[in-house]
Write a protein that binds this DNA or RNA. Structure first.
Lengths: 353, 353
DNA sequence: TTGAAAGCGCTACCAG
DNA sequence: CTGGTAGCGCTTTCAA
């Protein structure tokens, strides 16, 4: 008789109760509450609504889903929530979904592709209208193929899919202009006079990092200027990673490096703190630039040069892309804009040969 | 024949299909896949599983919900996602829920109590096992009463409720020790030698702010020391609000104020930037302290003195509280710990009478 | 405009 | 251990 520690079974008044209370049939009650109000006598409709209110009736969404054969659900998979990057994306997706009258179900993959796959599997059970994956973007063939298979089945079953900033998969995708943004940042820094760089990046399989890194290097290369051989240091894609990487740079001796490009802001900020901790003034002795332009980029000292990406907008756009029903080839590229601040004031002395 | 712009109807293989494919009855298929595996011959079970895999079958959660009379859903209402405070709470709730095998549905109230109420109404339609509200904590009687009514009905129907940091409502609640944390911060600052304070707070109806403010003032008062009349400035509960408030303080002339307490970190950080913009060095000429100890508190210059509240843990605890099924009177107080950093080094000169 | 009734996909009870 | 079958709460023909 005990329903167990965690388990009650939410019930509540049903449409039958409402119908009885209003003295009409369930069919009429259904029509009055959720169907086309058109064909029900207004007096009856009023009685039904009154009865529903009196009883505190709420339509059982699962029952509706099964009867109608459709849900109003969007399944969202993010790598993490407690991270401004994903939080902003989630905010965008949620805003747009709610505007379309859809309910968002969110699952957190903890940045693990396997878990991401597992979640998509389970979420599919909800028969969501749309599945949005804002993933960890880690390359890897097997899990990736399974994910594609899973999403394909979803689509075959009539569902929609949208990806945010994933590697190239056969679904509508909105991507951030990582390569272009980093490239333009390189140009901007060169324009300021910097010539020797260090790049703080994440491991190769983190695609976002890889793209930003290669974009930056491409920007340097195509300038035709003599930039020597940029120092590249690999670390975690986190604040701690940036901190560690900067530490490593200082330890190995940063030589003639004038500017550090960290592939995201939290790494850049961690790096700045590490520099300062070692007595090196960020901006003055060593310039620092990041990527993402997170809110706090403006509150660190010196304010951080970065590349702004409208993350909330990217999330919203993903929803729109999914709902628009354009084909799997639909792509949206969210622009990235270089924002120069005091952390890259230009090299201290005009390069003296 | 056109299903409309945004609307496909996700279908897919059903249990019947699987059963037929495996050459067993639906009942057996059901048992093999989702019921107690105990009572089905392993050979049959294998056939069923194989058939399910071959067909890409996923149980229809809505159908299960309706047949079982129970869901495995947690409905979470947050004020905002794109804010580290709520993001951390959401992360905690999500982590704990997923560990219990529950799926989280998230809705964003945009910090509006009316919208919060509306969302709870709609979410109830999902018949979630648990409803968690991490609200905007704005006082207001009417909407509040309706929310209580709604949540009560949910409970009556057998569901669970948990609140995070809400005003005192008759449901299990985990609260942050805002008053105590601020009080201890006051003590700490007094201990450092500060005597003249300014408080940057949000409007009275923002409860979190109100509690922190009153806790701080109580801490000052009970010290018995001569602290004069602290300057209290009201502004938005945001970074911009902090910036503006600090601006206002400087404009009106901060007189003998030695330390600023902002009721949250983002306000404090905004204030620091404003001070610096006006040529006042934070920490040196004017000490600054915040509340929340958000990640970036450590990355601003000087590092920000704050009061740490384990937000992720608070979210997790709310889930546990809800699942434990303790009565409506269940309360959990998440401790808050003062963290002194360089933004409050102690007043410049030993107080000279 | 209304009501009766047939499902929607799945579970669980009841016989075999 | 297995299959038939009666619902779960709701929508949606089909007749009236």
């Amino acid at each position: 008789m005990d329903s167990g520690p965690s388990g009650a079974a939410p019930s509540g008044p049903t449409l039958h109760d409402v119908a009885r209370e209003a003295g009409v049939s369930v069919a009429t009650a259904s029509r009055a509450l959720n169907g086309s109000t058109r064909n029900v006598r207004s007096e009856n409709a009023a009685r039904v609504r009154a009865a529903a209110a009196r009883l505190g009736y709420r339509p059982h969404l699962s029952a509706q889903a099964i009867a109608r054969g459709t849900t109003r659900t969007v399944a969202l998979v993010v790598g993490d929530v407690d991270d401004p990057y994903f939080a902003a994306l989630a905010a965008g997706v949620t805003r747009e979904a709610e505007q379309a009258g859809l309910i968002v179900t969110m699952a957190v993959a903890d940045r693990s592709p396997e878990r991401e796959l597992e979640l998509v599997r389970r979420l599919r059970g909800q028969r969501p209208r749309v599945i949005v994956v804002a993933g960890s973007r880690i390359a890897g063939t097997r899990t990736r193929d399974l994910l594609v298979a899973e999403l394909s089945e979803h689509r075959t079953a009539g569902g929609r899919v949208a990806l945010i900033s994933q590697p190239d998969l056969p679904f509508p995708t909105v991507s951030l202009d990582n390569h272009g943004g980093a490239r333009r940042l390189a140009h901007a820094l060169l324009g300021l006079g910097y010539r020797r760089f260090a790049v703080l990046r994440a491991p190769e399989r983190v695609r976002t990092s890889a793209e930003r890194c290669s974009g930056f290097l491409a920007g340097l290369r195509e300038s035709g200027l003599d930039v020597g051989r940029p120092v590249v240091i690999e670390a975690d894609f986190t604040r701690a990673g940036g901190h560690a990487a900067a530490g490593a740079l200082l330890r190995r001796g940063h030589g003639d490096v004038q500017a550090i490009f960290a592939v995201n802001d939290v790494m850049a900020i961690g790096a700045m703190t590490a520099l300062r901790g070692a007595g090196v003034v960020p901006g003055r002795e060593l310039a620092v630039a990041g990527f993402d332009d997170i809110g706090s980029a403006i509150d660190v000292v010196p304010p951080l040069t970065s590349v702004a990406v409208p993350l909330v907008e990217a999330g919203a756009q993903a929803m729109r892309l999914a709902l628009s029903g354009d084909g799997a080839a639909a792509r949206a590229l969210v622009p990235a804009r270089v924002v120069l601040r005091a952390s890259t004031p230009g090299p201290p002395a005009p390069s003296a040969p």
